[in-house]
């Protein structure tokens, strides 16, 4: 190639590369904007439906109760002389600590939710395992049966349980007519009825994430463990259990968190002696009309529940790192 030709070729080359660079850049810009857009949608959603309401609740929890509409003092005030006052009080939170009603109902709720979670896990784990190991043609049907209750309203299903557990209910009727018992069992309005309601309602939330992790499990891992001398229980304990731990954590949190704040089930199936934070919250809002204290209860409950959520996040991040 002559020197002329080489010289002529230079500018075209660089022009081409500039076009290419520009193209790359605009591509990157579009890509970056697209990424921003994709992130923005859920962010806006969260802002409107979670962060804004939460800020409002937080604001009310820092106000004082008063007989007015709305029933609490405003946080910011513009006086007529244009002086600006912010009145913040932590009295409501202090009140939560002093009155052991709140303290014991928080504990009660956590305890009840914890126990329900364990029961759900004990029932859900073998069920999920059974579904994951079932023949592929019936697996879909089994999964459908797990989620089928969602087709009916949650409230209706709890009412159905009332019909079952009542003194004149179906279970008592059946047992009486078979002569197994002489007088009706007292099942309604007991703590047992609350467990039945919660376990029944939240079991699918345990089964589905468990199923999702178990379905991915490679059967040959179990075989390898057995081949290396692991008896069935040892294989479960050393291989299956640790590998399904992410599903156990996810399912437990999905049951534990809503069960802690559960209101409908204890209100309809439980007795009034079982203090639960959901009911306390309801009573503060609607019976006492003390919105600031009710808001403080709600904020404190959220703070309690943030801890397990963070644990879950941490676990998921670790899991993501691993696979």
């Amino acid at each position: 190639m002559s020197r002329d030709a080489a010289n002529k070729k230079l500018p075209t080359l660089s022009a081409g590369s500039i076009v290419k660079m520009a193209g790359d850049l605009s591509g990157k810009l579009i890509q970056r904007n697209w990424k921003r857009f994709v992130i923005a949608v859920p962010l806006v959603w969260l802002l409107i439906f979670f962060i804004v309401p939460f800020v409002i609740v937080l604001k009310i929890s820092l106000a004082e109760g008063m007989i007015a509409r709305p029933p609490f003092t405003p946080l910011f005030e513009w006086a007529e002389d244009l002086s600006f006052t912010i009145s913040v009080t932590f009295e409501n939170f202090r009140f939560l600590v002093t009155d052991d009603l709140y303290y014991s109902s928080y504990l009660n709720s956590l305890f009840l939710a914890g126990k329900s979670t364990i029961i759900c896990l004990l029932i859900g784990y073998p069920m999920a395992y059974g579904i994951a190991r079932s023949r592929s043609d019936i697996r879909g049907i089994l999964l459908l049966m797990v989620v089928l209750p969602f087709w009916t309203s949650f409230l209706l299903r709890i009412y159905a349980w009332m019909g079952l557990l009542n003194k004149n209910g179906i279970i008592n009727g059946a047992l009486l007519s078979m002569g197994i018992i002489d007088e009706p069992l007292n099942m309604m309005f007991t703590e047992g009825a609350i467990y039945v309601g919660i376990v029944y309602s939240y079991l699918p939330f345990m089964i589905l994430p468990l199923y999702a992790t178990m379905e991915k499990l490679d059967e040959s891992l179990n075989e390898a463990a057995a081949d290396l001398g692991g008896k069935p229980f040892t294989v479960f304990y050393t291989v299956t259990l640790p590998l399904t731990l992410p599903g156990i954590v996810a399912g437990s949190l999905l049951v534990f968190i809503p069960a802690t704040g559960e209101y409908v089930i204890p209100a309809l199936l439980g007795n009034y002696d079982t203090l639960m934070i959901g009911r306390v919250l309801f009573d503060e809002f609607f019976s006492n009309r003390d919105w600031p204290v009710a808001s403080a209860v709600a904020v404190a409950l959220l703070a309690f529940l943030v801890v397990p959520i963070m644990m879950y996040q941490h676990f998921q991040a670790k899991d993501g790192e691993r696979s």
Binding site: D218, S220, A224, P242, L243
Partner: peptide, 14 residues
């Protein structure tokens, strides 16, 4: 008294 090497290797991922 037999051990097997699996086609997928079946190493325990955890």
């Amino acid at each position: 008294p037999v051990n097997m090497m699996f086609q997928s290797y079946a190493l325990f991922p955890h």
